[in-house]
Structures are given as structure tokens and as C-alpha cells.
């Protein structure tokens, strides 16, 4: 083993970041923690309630429902967008001109403000004036996202796929571009099938960007608020009320600050935990063989 000189002064170089993060993240988070363990009736009067709010939230059926909806939504998003993104990346045109055209077209949804995306789909799906809604209606399909929970779900999921699959595709495309030609040439000489090339060359080389894509898509879909709020407002009933929509209802609609704060913390820790799980699972095979022989 080699011993390295240790210089503790380096900590001072980290200090500016620590201060910045403290003011931008840690201190605001602490105020939420503060709310989550107290009750208030206004007039700046607070009463210590301990973990009661947490207890309430964990045993609340409303939270359970929203949580399950959220898990289902994120699972659907990942199950659709990741494979679809890979397929799109693999099917990118070979000519430089058409690649450029497709890349620009694919980037467009990513540049649209989220509430505008919601508005686009809200109008697009309307049965009276929307292109999609009216077309489906005239084809005799009984589609109405304001009344049918399944239709509402389909609309929200399709909207998110439209909005975000490009991100996965662009990341995968970047990953594919970084594979040297020699790999494909060697595979041809080895007589590998198209599937074997994907399985043994392209997929392993895309692994790192896929990790980023999965984490980003998981976190974003788990926190989704704006688009479904604009399209369905969480309805019909509570059928598309995801965690963040529920949270806003509780905090601003009902002004239940303590309960909302407790829910925020549970929400935050859930995202942190699940992201950690994804990261660990997807990098576990790396760690086991990253021991170059001496």
C-alpha cells in the first residue's frame, strides 16, 4: 500500500460549496423538519407534537393511494421510455444531414415549458375541439380523459412519453456514438448476429448513460406535478392525484402545514432511497470485476 500525504487545508476549499448548499438546501429543509414536528393555529404559535404527523401520514389511506399511483406511474414511465429510447437511438439515420434533422426534432419537446406541455395535451385530447380527442371520438372510440380514469392515465402517460423519451434516446445515442468501429468490425468477423451485437457490445457500452437515464427519468417522473395538474387536475376523482399533487392540495388547499411537512420529508426520503437502490443495483456488477490483476 502506498501512503499519501494528507493535507487537511483542502477542507477550506470545500467551504464555499458547503455554505452555498447550506443556504440553498439544508436550511430550507430544516424549516420543513421544524414544521413537521409542530402544530400551529396561526398567530405564530407552535405546539410540539413529536412524530404524530408522521404517524398520521403513514397510516393515512389517502397517502397510501397516492403513493401506489406514484409507484405505478414511475414504473410505467421507465418500462416504456427506457426500451423505447434505446430503440429510437438504434434506429437513428446514418446520414449526417438526417441525423441532425432528427436530433433537432427530438430535442424540441425537451425545450417546451412543462405547463405548456400540459396545456398542449389538455387541448389536444379534448373531445370537443382537440385533434386527438375529436379524431378518436369520430372513430367511435369512447375516449374522455375528464371522465374516465383509464383515459386520464393513458393521456398522462402518453404525454410524458412524448415529452421525455427523447432524453433517453439522446443519451443512448451519445453512448452508441462512443463505441469505436473496431467493435462492430470484430463482431462481423466473429460472425455475431444483430442481437449478439446489441447484447454484447451496444448494451454494455450504453450501461453508464442508461444509469443516468434511468435515474433522471425515475426522479423526474416520481416528482411529476405540472403536466398532470394542468391536464387532469388530479382527476377524475383522485385517479391521477400523484404524490406532489396531493402534497400541494394538503399544504395550500387545506393549509395542513405540519402534515404536509411530514409528507414532504417522507416523499424526499423515498426518492433518495429508491434512487440509491437503482444506483446500487445498476453498478453492482461493475464493482465485482474492477480489480485489474497485479
Amino acid at each position: 500500500m502506498q501512503t499519501r500525504p494528507v493535507n487537511q487545508k483542502a477542507w477550506f476549499l470545500v467551504l464555499p460549496v458547503v455554505v452555498l448548499v447550506a443556504f440553498s438546501a439544508i436550511i430550507p429543509l430544516m424549516t420543513v423538519v421544524n414544521y413537521s414536528v409542530q402544530d400551529t393555529f396561526g398567530n405564530n404559535q407552535f405546539f410540539w407534537v413529536g412524530l404524530e404527523w408522521f404517524d398520521d401520514i403513514i397510516h393515512s389511506e389517502r397517502f397510501h393511494d397516492a403513493f401506489l399511483r406514484q409507484i405505478l406511474f414511475s414504473a410505467l414511465i421507465l418500462a416504456i421510455q427506457v426500451p423505447l429510447g434505446i430503440v429510437v437511438a438504434l434506429c437513428m439515420p446514418k446520414s449526417r444531414f438526417w441525423t441532425a434533422v432528427v436530433l433537432v426534432l427530438m430535442a424540441l419537446p425537451l425545450l417546451i415549458p412543462w405547463n405548456v406541455v400540459g396545456t398542449i395535451w389538455q387541448i389536444f385530447g379534448r373531445v370537443d375541439i382537440g385533434l386527438l380527442g375529436k379524431t378518436l371520438f369520430s372513430l367511435g372510440i369512447d375516449y374522455n380523459y375528464t371522465q374516465d380514469p383509464i383515459d386520464a392515465w393513458v393521456t398522462v402517460v402518453v404525454m410524458d412519453v412524448w415529452h421525455w423519451t427523447s432524453l433517453v434516446a439522446l443519451l443512448c445515442y451519445a453512448g452508441l456514438q462512443s463505441i469505436p468501429d473496431a467493435y462492430y468490425q470484430a463482431a462481423r468477423i466473429d460472425g455475431a448476429s444483430r442481437w449478439a451485437v446489441f447484447r454484447h457490445i451496444q448494451l454494455p457500452k450504453m450501461k453508464r448513460v442508461l444509469l443516468i437515464a434511468v435515474l433522471l427519468r425515475f426522479m423526474d417522473s416520481f416528482m411529476i406535478y405540472t403536466e398532470p395538474f394542468v391536464v387532469t387536475g388530479g382527476g377524475p376523482g383522485n385517479s391521477t392525484t400523484f404524490l406532489s399533487i396531493d402534497l400541494v392540495k394538503m399544504a395550500i388547499g387545506q393549509f395542513d402545514l405540519g402534515k404536509a411537512a411530514a409528507m414532504s420529508i417522507i416523499y424526499f426520503l423515498t426518492i433518495l432511497l429508491l434512487s440509491w437502490v437503482f444506483y446500487t443495483v445498476m453498478t453492482s456488477s461493475d464493482a465485482s470485476d474492477r480489480k485489474p490483476r497485479g
Binding site: P180, A182, Y183, Q185, A186, R188, I189, D190, G191, H200, I201, P204
Partner: peptide, 16 residues
Amino acid sequence: PEDRNIAQVFQFPVIY
């Protein structure tokens, strides 16, 4: 290439 009974070793090692 795969029907030519030729093997090629490239500048940068290609392994699966």
C-alpha cells in the same frame, strides 16, 4: 467478413 476465414486484431483491444 464472417465467411472469409479471416481474423483481424485491431489497434485497440476489442473484447466483449
